[in-house]
Amino acid sequence: MFEPLQPFSAVLTLDAESASQGPGAKPSTDADLLDDYSRTVSDVVERVGPSVVRIDVKRGGRPAGSGSGVIVSSDGLALTNSHVVQGSRVVALTTLEGRELQARVLGDDPDTDLALLRVEADVSLPMARLGDSSKLKRGQIAIAIGNPLGFDASVTAGVISALGRSLQSRTGRMIEDVVQTDAALNPGNSGGPLVSSAGEIVGINTAVIMGAQGICFAVASNTANFVAGEIARHGRVRRAYIGVGAATTAIPRRIALRLELEQATGARLLNVDQAGPAAHAGLLSGDIIIALDGKTVTSVGELLRALDAEKINRTVPVDVLRRSERLRVWIGPVERPAA
């Protein structure tokens, strides 16, 4: 069973280069290596910590829950989890230095468990930058900063355990391209950032598995960047819908070579809604989508991002592999129904 987290986290990526003393050089002792690791963690916590905030939700004047968030724009834009704001329109933010601010919920997206907030006061706040989660690698160090179980400004460390996971959202739809980490997360960590050694957000912490140890999840920063942009522009996330279920899959090398494909993966269709646009266009279960509207598709995450609001009610080309042949079909995405 998946249990949503509820507060404050940041996570670090420590590359091999950052653990070395220079090109080709290595620490001479284990103590030197540990000191370098400790300095890297401390530096990231000092840089990113001030941008992480506590979020408190009230209903009828009474506390209704708390979580974490991260400031992504100095004028007061903040990201958190949808389940943290619980459908509220206004929440309270508390900064690391204890400053209390009121924030308006610009919009939330239960399908990805993300929400975008704006501080109502005219402020200038410390911020963290969204990075490129597609560059993450398994084994990179992860650091969580937050207020799990009410213990404010707690720091834990682990690694990036896996990439490209799928996680069921509260709406029943799958959140794709999820980052798995073993950095300790507890109720109170939800909505906090996963941060790289460069001080960039690579994920927004969202859930743990009850009864498991060291299995925690974060929504990838590329997904968060897309959702934040849609909410800022439209107040909600508008998505195109073609009526398929899919999974990232490898393309057989012999087929890729024969068809002169540069990509190694695509999005295999697991099921096709017979009443949806994909079925009407002639797509079948087992087809591998490799491009949509002229843009390469190498994963389910890329397919979902490609089905943005601009594709609604347009007719666009979709390139697929069927068995060992490349085909092109034309499809007319519609607006995805509300959850």
Rank of each mutant, 00 (worst) to 15 (best):
M1Q: 14
E3F: 08
E3S: 11
Q6W: 09
F8N: 13
V11L: 14
A16M: 10
A19F: 08
Q21K: 07
G22D: 02
A25F: 12
P27C: 03
A31C: 02
L33N: 12
L33C: 09
L34T: 12
Y37V: 14
R39G: 03
R39H: 11
V41M: 11
V45D: 10
V48E: 08
V48F: 03
G49M: 06
S51I: 09
D56G: 01
D56F: 01
D56L: 03
G60Q: 07
A64S: 09
S68L: 09
S68R: 04
S68Q: 06
G69Y: 01
V70S: 03
D75M: 01
G76A: 01
L77R: 13
N81E: 08
S82F: 05
V85H: 00
S88H: 09
R89D: 15
T95K: 02
L96Y: 10
R99M: 09
Q102L: 12
L106H: 00
D109C: 03
T112W: 05
L114M: 04
V119Y: 00
E120D: 14
P126E: 04
P126K: 01
R129I: 15
G131P: 01
S133V: 10
K135N: 14
K135M: 13
R138S: 11
I143E: 08
I145N: 10
P148R: 04
P148Q: 06
P148N: 06
F151V: 15
A153P: 05
V155D: 10
T156F: 10
T156P: 12
A162H: 08
S169V: 12
G172M: 05
G172S: 04
V179F: 05
T181Q: 06
T181C: 08
T181D: 06
A183D: 08
A183L: 09
L185E: 08
G188L: 02
G192N: 02
S196G: 13
G199D: 07
V202K: 03
V202E: 10
N205R: 02
N205E: 01
A207D: 04
V208L: 13
G214N: 08
F217G: 07
V219C: 10
A220D: 15
A220P: 07
A228D: 02
A228W: 00
A228T: 02
G229P: 12
R239A: 11
I242V: 14
I242L: 11
A246R: 10
L257Q: 15
R258F: 11
Q263C: 08
A264I: 13
G266Y: 02
G266C: 06
L270V: 12
V272Y: 00
A279I: 01
L283P: 01
I290N: 00
L292H: 00
K295L: 09
V297T: 10
V297H: 03
S299P: 01
G301L: 01
G301P: 03
R305L: 11
R305N: 05
D308W: 00
A309D: 15
K311N: 04
T315F: 03
V316W: 01
P317G: 01
P317L: 03
V318Q: 04
D319G: 06
D319N: 11
D319Y: 01
L321Y: 02
L321R: 03
L327K: 12
R328D: 06
V329A: 08
I331K: 01
G332R: 15
V334N: 08
E335V: 06
R336H: 08
A339E: 14
